[in-house]
Amino acid sequence: MKRRRFLIPSLLAAGLGAHDPARAADKEAGLAPPPADPDAGSLARLYSQDHLFTLASHRSHSSHSSHSSGSGGGGHYSHTSHRSSTGGYDGGSYSYDPPVIPRLPRTPPSPLPSQTAPQPLFTPFERASPPAGDGLAPLSGRTRRFAAIVRRVELALLAQDFYKGPIDGVVTPELRAALRAFQGKRGLEVTGTITPATLDALMVSSQ
């Protein structure tokens, strides 16, 4: 047990996982294989055997395919203007719409002089605006939060030999199979999903 606990931090230290900002920047800029790589990553692909790996700032393209599968993780990189949580509200596509629910007033604090007047009641329920951008946060908060936990689950399952896929924060059929195998082995309810009991058993604790 103890050994496993130490294995995860070691994997992290070895550079597996946790490369969101760089990856996000790739995605945002729509970067093709870096020009510095004349064989367009084919050599890297050959050796990566379909595993995610990180070399300098160049990520293996063999893992890109996994981004389009799973629960739609790949398609939700939001633009900078969407960093407020409700930026994507369109209200139109959902055929069930509760009464008009205006978008949250979660715009970055604007230095309007009129703001000095007392605010109406029932507005202070929202979170403060996200911290000022460092230019590296094109992912919506939920996507980052979601992927961060999935990566920890992937690592923990990898450490226990249930999972062999990339540590990419994407829920793939492969990860589901690993979850089912783990849950079965540990006598947990077999759901193939990241349940509270599974998080506990994997010792992926709350942050």
Binding site: S85, R127, P130, T195, P196, Q207
Partner: peptide, 27 residues
Amino acid sequence: AARLVTEDDEGVAFSSANGLLAIDGVC
């Protein structure tokens, strides 16, 4: 029921039998 997994400045994440759920804009 779903249990709280993490919370940060922009939102929260819960886990239930249906798996993970990350929500934005609330504490």
